[in-house]
Design a protein around this nucleic acid. Structure first.
Length: 225
DNA sequence: CCAGACGTTGTT
DNA sequence: GTCTGG
DNA sequence: CCAGACGTTGTT
DNA sequence: GTCTGG
């Protein structure tokens, strides 16, 4: 699955996320190396593909009475996304792209039964984009809270070595299609697939990443080199 | 009909 | 063991 | 995802 | 809001 990731990028890189266009970056973004659920993350929403928006990670459905569901809705399984009440409307109407420079998975070490963190990134160090769904919820103060969940799928042959799920990654050439067209299940079935294994590398990192408040470049440095 | 859930992961 | 917060 | 808390009463 | 279970 995907429960932590990093986004350290220059504005110029983020502006070019959609091929042939310029995405407006209005917020000042600091480099993030340990983005955790409940925090705000950057995303391009289908409702506004002209700019990078900020959404809370952990989906709060529009009908929710409180935000207690959010921590349970950080991921959505691609296989059942058209069936689940919380997601079936969103896959049709409320899709987004979440840029990342890499993400983390914890591999269970059979010998120690402990968990070892790994960092997974594009082999050419390019940004990539997760498939996400978002929703709008109004809290008791009548404030609109936009929140987001990351779609997951089976791992590809390379990443199955460390985990049995992986985030869905939308290729650059599919990004505008994912955001702007009216997609049916037939359309999304060919997009919500494990990424090409050749595009990704992974390596072990220090356990400091376990602590979500430890947001430092050290999180993404190889433990051994 | 109304009431109550609405999710994923990993482990067994 | 299970939930909440980051 | 992991880390850290997990409770009430009464008093300030 | 919509589906499932009773």
């Amino acid at each position: 699955m995907c429960g932590r990731f990093a986004l350290s990028a220059k504005t110029a890189q983020l502006e070019k996320l959609l091929p042939g266009r310029t995405v407006k970056i209005s917020a000042i973004l600091t480099n993030r190396y340990n983005i955790a659920p409940t925090q705000n993350i950057s995303a391009i929403m289908n409702a506004n593909t002209d700019e990078l928006s900020s959404l809370k990670w952990g989906l709060i459905p529009s009908w929710a009475k409180d935000d207690s569901l959010a921590s349970k809705m950080i991921n959505a399984r691609a296989e059942t996304i058209f069936e689940k009440p919380s997601f079936k409307n969103l896959i049709v109407r409320r899709r987004c792209l979440i840029p990342a420079s890499g993400y983390f998975e914890w591999k269970i070490d059979p010998s120690s039964k402990g968990k070892i963190p790994y960092y997974i990134k594009n082999s050419k160090d390019e940004l990539f984009t997760f498939a996400g769904l978002w929703d709008s919820w109004k809290n008791n103060e009548n404030e609109i809270i936009n929140s987001v969940t990351i779609v997951t799928c089976q791992p590809n042959d390379k990443l199955s070595a460390i985990h049995n799920r992986m985030p869905v990654i939308i290729n650059p050439d599919d990004r505008i299609n994912w955001l702007e067209n009216n997609l049916t299940k037939t359309d999304t079935d060919i997009l919500l697939l494990p990424a090409d294994p050749d595009l990704f590398d992974f390596y072990e990192v220090d356990k400091k990443v376990n602590i979500s408040s430890f947001d430092s470049e050290e999180c993404v440095n190889p433990k051994y080199f």
